[in-house]
């Protein structure tokens, strides 16, 4: 069941094509990961799917409804968005921040709100930060607090769409795994989740579907096993990188290294490099 469908969407800005004729389907029960180099269009795609580009052409459907036909509260009850940038400079406590997530919720009973907040605090490991003020938090703690706010928005919705732009950005290794495991649990519960990542191995370990983006297009889509291979990764991230697959307890992980030519430059004698 596709909860969010985009057909041939394009975004242009100042004569530059940021997203070209892209189609994607987000199915209930699936954690779908976007991979690609900087500037490939991951953020543009996520923003287009969240209805942020008024100039976007093509069709986006949330469930069976074409996007502009749903107003903001209706969209918010079915889809939550975690942006890449975070501009909050005001001193909300983490608990207050998360409460903002309940703005459009139909069930406004204090008991429900309290339960949802407790649940997302625990799920994102931010319970100990609940009364701290947001601007005093570290980068990773802020990220988790924002994620908790996004989850609170649709926590009690059976089939919601989550659009997450680099949800594990600036998280430590342990929390990267906590968050991705949480996303898998939510997918199993019936959510459709699209998340952009830069960590190849997190994608390989947790994603059920991977889309590779390059120059404003999705160049490959499928399970991590079928999509991720050395030639594709080289063409995506650079021909002078080597990608070695390691089979580990039934899952495939990738070892990334610079080719000798690149490392040679780095270790070369400074005097020789200058001449």
């Amino acid at each position: 069941m596709s909860l969010l469908t985009a057909e041939k969407i394009s975004v242009e800005r100042a004569g530059r094509v940021l997203l070209a004729d892209t189609s994607i389907q987000l199915a209930a029960g699936e954690l779908h990961v976007l991979l690609g180099p900087n500037g490939a269009g991951k953020t543009t795609l996520l923003r287009a799917l969240s209805g942020e580009w008024p100039t976007c052409t093509g069709e986006i459907r949330l469930g069976n409804d074409v996007l502009p036909r749903l107003d903001a509260p209706q969209q918010a009850r079915r889809r939550a968005v975690l942006p890449q940038q975070d501009a909050l400079a005001f001193g909300f406590t983490v608990r207050e921040l998360i409460t903002l997530g309940r703005h459009a919720a139909i069930d406004h009973r204090p008991d429900t709100t309290k339960q949802v907040i407790a649940a997302v605090l625990q799920a994102t490991d931010t319970a100990h930060l609940a009364e701290r003020r947001y601007p005093e938090l570290s980068g990773g703690e802020r990220r988790r607090a924002q994620l908790a706010r996004v989850l609170a928005q649709v926590w009690d919705v059976p089939h919601a769409v989550l659009l997450l732009d680099e949800p594990v950005h600036s998280l430590d290794l342990g929390h990267q795994h906590t968050v991705l495991a949480l996303l898998r649990t939510l997918a199993a519960k019936g959510f459709a989740i699209l998340a952009s990542l830069h960590e190849l191995n997190l994608a390989a370990a947790y994603a059920q579907r991977v889309s590779l983006m390059q120059a404003g297009r999705i160049v490959a889509t499928g399970t991590p096993e079928t999509v991720l291979d050395s030639p594709r990764l080289k063409s995506l991230y650079g021909e002078d990188l080597s990608f070695t697959a390691i089979e580990n307890a039934g899952s495939r992980q990738w070892l990334t290294a610079a080719e000798p030519t690149r490392s040679a430059i780095r270790t070369a004698d400074p005097g020789a490099a200058r001449s």
Binding site: Q75, V81, P83, L100
Partner: peptide, 16 residues
């Protein structure tokens, strides 16, 4: 309150 997060973020929270 929602507006303090940013305009796009407020819209995603369901603010018209």
């Amino acid at each position: 309150d929602a507006l303090l997060l940013g305009e796009a973020e407020a819209a995603h929270l369901g603010v018209r």
